[in-house]
């Protein structure tokens, strides 16, 4: 259902794109541009989809990105091999995820509060690392990381390969093992799952760790894009975009379902909107408002109440 709606919306948006692109003579530019820019949001949203599936939420993903940025600048300027720095960054994200998972699954704090702690503290931690090891917004040069973020292989941006790899890896993890079923079961009804023999706490913990990992991956790509660590403004509001992408993808915040593919489409819808508004020549001030309206429209179509009302109107028309 949600897929159909989003495809319709895409279909409405895409022809506009298409014409403009031909006029400007850039045949594939816009589509690639949308994919390219959607990568960080999509990566964060994938992890978010898993956490939301467990009936949780992770507000700290933007801060995890900031921490990763600071770790990258610090370690590269300290002279570590760049591949190792890449793993350090991912490790930092995993540790952040473990922290969140411990608060939620271990101490039983409500997810929105538990992750709020790191959301607030994370950017401070990033600034602290910067001020201890590099000063204000330290920049760095790394062929490997920048290549991964802004380079291209076979005319296709490298980050698309990276994102596809993460997507595929997650899909294997969620659908080829029973982890997905367990997360959805815990998200749907934690008490029942525990009595059915599922280790609810460990499963919840794992969901946050995965989310930390994908946020860190997004952090590597975003930081390498600007090759600067800027904990204050990097990935601002990215948690909200990610949650939105998951919801557009058809998942409910009350947990129980994970839609990885639809989440990516959700992230693409958000980016497509932003890009199309920019290209259509509307003043950028309208961007946020139009985005909000379109999101409202999508969610309206997904709402069961609205559908029931529409169904009724339709029935009356037939009569």
């Amino acid at each position: 259902m949600a897929l159909a709606i989003i495809l319709i919306i895409d279909a409405i948006i895409m022809p506009g794109f298409f014409e403009i692109r031909i006029v400007e003579g850039r045949l594939f530019g816009n589509v690639i541009d949308i994919l390219y820019r959607a990568v960080p949001t999509a990566l964060i949203a994938l992890g978010m989809a898993i956490v939301i599936g467990s009936r949780g939420i992770d507000l700290s993903v933007g801060s995890i990105v900031a921490i990763c940025g600071a770790v990258i600048a610090w370690r590269i300027n300290a002279g570590d091999p760049h591949l190792l720095v890449f793993f350090y960054a991912l490790l930092a994200g995993v540790i952040c995820g473990m922290w969140n998972g411990m608060l939620v699954a271990g101490l039983g704090i409500q997810p929105i509060i538990a992750t709020l702690i790191l959301m607030v503290a994370g950017r401070g931690i990033g600034l602290l690392i910067n001020s201890l090891y590099g000063g204000i917004n330290p920049s760095f040069e790394s062929e490997l990381l920048q290549g991964m973020s802004t380079g291209s292989v076979l005319y296709i941006p490298t980050r698309l390969f990276a994102a596809a790899a993460v997507f595929f890896g997650l899909w294997l993890l969620i659908r080829r093992t029973a982890l997905g079923l367990f997360i959805e079961a815990v998200g749907g009804n934690a008490a029942a799952s525990a009595l059915a023999g599922v280790n609810s706490r460990l499963i919840t913990f794992a969901a946050y760790v995965v989310c930390g990992f994908t946020a860190a991956f997004a952090g590597v790509i975003m930081t390498a894009d600007t090759h600067t660590s800027d904990p204050v403004s990097i990935a601002m509001f990215s948690e909200l975009d990610a949650i939105l992408a998951v919801v557009i993808g058809g998942a409910s915040l009350s947990g129980g379902r994970i839609y990885l593919g639809m989440t990516v489409i959700g992230a693409l819808v958000i980016q497509a909107l932003t890009t199309s508004i920019l290209i259509s020549g509307l003043p950028p001030e309208y961007n946020l408002i139009i985005k909000a309206l379109v999101v409202l429209f999508v969610l309206f179509l997904q709402s069961e109440n609205a559908r029931a009302t529409f169904g009724l109107m339709f029935k009356r028309d037939v009569k």
Binding site: A178, E184, N189, G197, G255, G256
Partner: peptide
């Protein structure tokens, strides 16, 4: 509240315990 995961399908609910026994 304790028996079933309402959002999941019949198949998924039936498999849950057996899967939990086997590990993820």
């Amino acid at each position: 509240t304790e028996g079933l995961v309402g959002e999941l399908t019949i198949r998924e609910n039936i498999v849950l315990s057996m899967q939990a026994k086997k590990g993820w």
